[in-house]
């Protein structure tokens, strides 16, 4: 039995991933049945070496899955700041939104991932974008009682006002 390229990416099985891609380049951006590419699986499960390797091989970081999920949102949701930074360095849309209006910043806040929220805010994530339910990142931080994330957003707003 062999694992699919999506499973190899998610499990960070780099040697097998390299071998698998050597057999078939076209697998690099192969979406699964919900539209998730190997890069998205690696980003969702925090496999930084796999993310780095797939990007080096030319994996497309801009691909959206069927419900507009993105590698950046998956990494932000998981709190994987280094992967968030890698994807932002590839110029992905920092304000991409999906099926419930979720943006990378909203997922970072929802997961109480302070470092991810800081990284996204530092790179200009839009703090006014609301989820379909009308919650902004600040609303969400307050509603969930995530004080540190709330402070990070407040500090960012102050910085914007001072400019």
């Amino acid at each position: 039995d062999s694992l699919s390229i999506h499973q190899l990416s998610a499990q960070g099985e780099l040697d097998q991933l390299i071998a698998c891609l050597q057999k078939g380049e076209q697998l690099l951006n192969r979406p699964d049945e919900r539209g998730f590419t190997p890069l998205m699986w690696a980003a969702a499960f925090g496999e930084i070496a796999a993310v780095r390797y797939l990007l080096e091989k030319g994996a497309d970081p801009h691909v959206l899955a069927k419900e507009r999920e993105s590698a950046l949102s998956l990494a932000s949701n998981g709190g994987f700041k280094d992967i968030v930074t890698m994807l932002l360095d590839k110029g992905v849309d920092i304000n991409v939104y999906d099926w419930n209006g979720g943006t990378p910043l909203l997922y970072a806040v929802r997961g109480n991932h302070v470092k991810c929220a800081e990284a996204l805010l530092a790179r200009g994530a839009d703090i006014t974008m609301e989820a379909d339910s009308g919650y902004t990142p600040m609303d969400l931080a307050v509603a969930l009682g995530y004080k540190k994330v709330q402070q990070v957003i407040e500090a960012h707003i102050l910085k914007l006002l001072q400019r």
Partner: peptide
């Protein structure tokens, strides 16, 4: 050897469980 499979990634509903804003 038993292969362990990860379940497909997914993104949660942002405001599940919160009152309507």
């Amino acid at each position: 050897t038993q292969l362990s499979l990860y379940t497909s990634p997914s993104l949660p509903n942002i405001t599940l469980g919160l009152p309507a804003s």
